[in-house]
């Protein structure tokens, strides 16, 4: 692809990504968090810990889980589900979305199948995950991949549909010959903004799916949340939810920096 993806990331981009370049915005955001925690604290004083634990209790659980090593083990395990699941699901979703949207024939052939499979929630496929992969990392990654697939499939499908017919005409008059050349030189770069929006949505959705993917007994952050829920350890539940939030934040900021870099040509 001809898009300029070279060059290094510099601190400015990261600061912009995190919102650190605008002190006023940063201050307001911080105020929001402090306000939220304060209200949470006040409400928690009126409730038993199994309904709403105090922020301090959650902090304590967080530190405890972290220092005992349980949290890092669980996180590492979830990362091993999230990374392959997201990569495989995203890759297949984008490839299928672009191909089915571009090719009228493929679209006709697959449309009824797509409409049948689309409403199936990833969770309903747990039986297949166990049967095909077993109760292991691959099974959990499979559930995540299914979720990533559909988000990226529809985002890419729509993005390719939205590519201007005029740009394709220009390509034809400049000697672009054949589907492969057209997709590579015009369709993909023209639809890249839409595709990347889908990828970004998928990255977040896949962290949510981590919980679902570990429901059948594979260890990880999701498993810890489910285990703590069953024991009414709400402070531990929230501590692990925070882990997922932090992971999402980290990935999202990094991805936005990449996105900005890749789409530098955009107005």
């Amino acid at each position: 692809m001809a898009t300029d993806t070279g060059g290094r990331f510099d601190g400015d981009e990261l600061r912009t990504g995190l919102g650190l370049d605008d002190p006023r915005r940063l201050a307001r955001g911080a105020a929001g968090i402090v306000g939220f925690v304060a209200v949470w604290h006040l409400v928690s004083l009126t409730q038993p810990a199994y309904v709403l634990p105090s922020p301090a209790a959650v902090g304590g659980s967080f530190a405890e889980e972290l220092s005992s090593g349980t949290m890092t083990t669980a996180l590492w395990s979830s990362v091993r589900h999230w990374v392959p699941g997201t990569i495989v699901g995203t890759g297949l979703g984008v490839a299928a979305g672009v191909a089915f949207s571009w090719s009228g024939l493929l679209d006709d052939v697959t449309a009824p199948l797509v409409r049948t499979l689309r409403p199936v929630p990833p969770l309903a496929l747990i039986g297949f995950a166990i049967a095909w992969f077993g109760i292991n990392d691959a099974g959990a990654a499979f559930i995540i991949a299914v979720g990533a697939f559909w988000i990226n499939f529809y985002a890419s499908y729509g993005a390719v549909e939205g590519v201007s017919e005029d740009l394709l005409d220009v390509g034809r008059t400049l000697g672009v010959g054949g589907d492969l050349d057209m997709v590579r030189s015009i369709v993909l770069p023209a639809s890249l903004p839409g595709i990347l929006t889908g990828v970004r949505t998928g990255l977040g959705r896949c962290w949510m799916l981590v919980v679902a993917s570990e429901i059948f007994g594979v260890p990880g952050v999701g498993r810890e949340i489910l285990r703590a829920s069953n024991n009414l350890l709400v402070d531990t539940v929230i501590a692990y939810i925070l882990v997922l939030s932090l992971m999402y934040l980290l990935v999202d900021v990094a991805f936005r920096a990449v996105q900005r870099r890749v789409l530098v040509w955009r107005a």
Partner: peptide, 8 residues
């Protein structure tokens, strides 16, 4: 015009 916006 229909320039390719992703190209210089």
């Amino acid at each position: 015009y229909h320039l390719f916006p992703w190209l210089t």
